[in-house]
Amino acid sequence: MKPAKKASSWISPSLWQKIRFAMVGVINTLTAYVAFIALYQITHRHILASVLAYFIGMMVSYVLNRSFVFKQPKRSGQFVPFCVVNLTSLACSTGILYLLVDHLGMYVYLAQVFAIGASMVINYLGYRTIFTRGVYQ
């Protein structure tokens, strides 16, 4: 009987990278969402809570994406572009949250889920460029 092939032998490096990104995304999203709930309960201000929670998630994201997803050592010149990607993502997600809650009357916790989804797409594309310069590890 042949031994089973390891999953890494039949899944491309690009797909493994996306799987790792998704795993980190779950950790990061849960961290930021729990922070959002806690901060919103304290402040009762959804925009402020969203922005502060985003920055908490951003710090977790930087460490895990650099070291686990893209497997890159810490190098100078990575953090500033990482922040630019995140500020772009934050602007988009905050705009979506504002539009959904303040103009469309959506429940704040559900609206935050949509805002997070939009930021995930922006972040993956930006992080991939920053940490790998377009080359999959």
Rank of each mutant, 00 (worst) to 15 (best):
M1S: 13
M1W: 01
K5H: 12
A7S: 15
S8F: 05
I11D: 01
I11M: 05
S12W: 14
S12Y: 13
S12N: 08
W16Y: 10
W16L: 11
K18M: 11
K18V: 11
I19K: 05
F21Y: 14
A22R: 08
A22V: 07
M23D: 02
M23I: 11
V24P: 02
V24G: 00
G25W: 03
V26S: 05
V26P: 00
V26Q: 02
V26C: 04
N28Y: 00
T29K: 08
L30R: 04
A32W: 00
Y33P: 04
A35N: 10
A35I: 13
A35M: 11
F36P: 03
I37K: 09
I37G: 06
A38F: 09
Q41F: 06
Q41T: 02
Q41M: 09
T43L: 10
T43P: 02
H44E: 14
H44N: 07
H44F: 11
R45N: 10
R45K: 10
H46K: 07
I47G: 11
L48S: 15
A49L: 08
L52D: 01
L52F: 09
F55R: 10
I56K: 05
M58A: 15
V60D: 08
V60A: 14
Y62M: 09
Y62F: 15
Y62Q: 00
L64H: 07
L64A: 08
N65Q: 05
N65Y: 02
N65H: 12
V69R: 01
P73G: 10
P73N: 09
K74H: 14
R75M: 14
R75D: 07
Q78R: 06
Q78M: 15
V80S: 12
P81Y: 09
P81R: 09
F82A: 05
C83K: 03
V84Y: 06
N86R: 09
L87Q: 09
L87C: 14
T88Y: 04
L90F: 04
A91R: 03
T94F: 01
I96R: 01
L97K: 08
L99F: 14
L100S: 09
V101Q: 00
V101H: 03
V101W: 05
V101A: 02
D102E: 15
H103C: 07
H103V: 00
H103N: 06
H103E: 13
L104F: 15
G105T: 11
M106I: 12
A111P: 03
A111F: 05
F114M: 13
F114H: 06
F114P: 04
A115C: 13
I116M: 03
G117R: 05
V121P: 06
I122D: 04
I122S: 06
L125Q: 06
L125R: 02
G126I: 04
Y127V: 00
T129F: 14
T129S: 15
I130N: 07
I130M: 08
T132C: 12
T132M: 04
R133A: 15
G134T: 11
G134P: 04
V135G: 07
Y136I: 07
Y136N: 12
Y136W: 12
